[in-house]
Design a protein around this nucleic acid. Structure first.
Lengths: 125, 125
DNA sequence: ATTGTTGCAAATTCTTTGCACACGC
DNA sequence: GCGTGTGCAAAGAATTTGCAACAAT
């Protein structure tokens, strides 16, 4: 199943800007593969993420969301509905000054999480 | 239970730099209140977080972690053991240039998540 | 007495896993 | 036939909730 075909097989490009949860994706995929199971969706998302074909957003919210674009970029999460959008324009936003907005999204705050190794696990990777 | 006493009641200050999960906290608290239940720990952490006395770090990793310092600051999460530390020095790090290190933590990457309202939920808060 | 907290256990939610079966080569 | 991927259902992990007992005012 791990063939990153350039051909999107009929999936509209705008779909790729979604950041669906596994369950949402399950509903979408189900329209075409009615007998697929949620377990399979999870299994394949995990695989795709491990191979850097998609990105798994484990960040805030209880459900993980998945991202068609594996390149590192910022996200914005709606505090009301949980939807997630991309922020490609790093210049804007809190890091540059006062909160602004982008594409109809209103920016209220932000959070930066670094990843690395702690003193105890140093070098163990 | 919501009295933010300036007196820490015997808890060593260095404990406050931990970012324990609910289960870890449960074990710690249990030493003093042996009959406390995990449900109560969750309930109170939620309350404290809602009143901005502590901060809930819902970010990556399956378990949430809680932070004694409610002020906004950055965190670093160990990719090996999951431990979380504070990063108070915003100047350093990827946003300022190449990856560095701080306090024995080695910085490998980062992720910025904004929060706000999406176009559909705009103004609904 | 009234109000708010707690312990306990059961329920919920999200995710992972085991296993027998089906499909492609 | 053989190996890999799949459906299904059950297990698992983290968190939340209902409720009766309890504590505090």
């Amino acid at each position: 199943m791990l063939h990153a075909t350039p051909n999107r097989g009929g999936i509209a490009p705008e779909k790729l800007t979604l950041h669906p949860t596994a369950a949402e994706l399950y509903e979408i995929v189900r329209k075409r593969l009615p007998k697929i199971s949620l377990g399979t969706v999870y299994r394949n998302l995990e695989l795709l993420a491990q191979n850097n074909i998609i990105q798994k957003l484990d960040t805030s919210g209880s459900e993980a969301r998945f991202n068609g674009n594996p390149e590192r970029h910022c996200h914005i999460r709606c505090v009301v509905c949980g939807r997630v959008g991309d922020i490609l324009d790093l210049a804007l936003g809190p890091l540059g000054g006062k909160f602004k907005e982008t594409n109809g999204w209103q920016i209220l705050g932000y959070c930066i999480e670094y990843e690395g190794t702690c003193p105890k696990c140093r070098g163990r990777r």
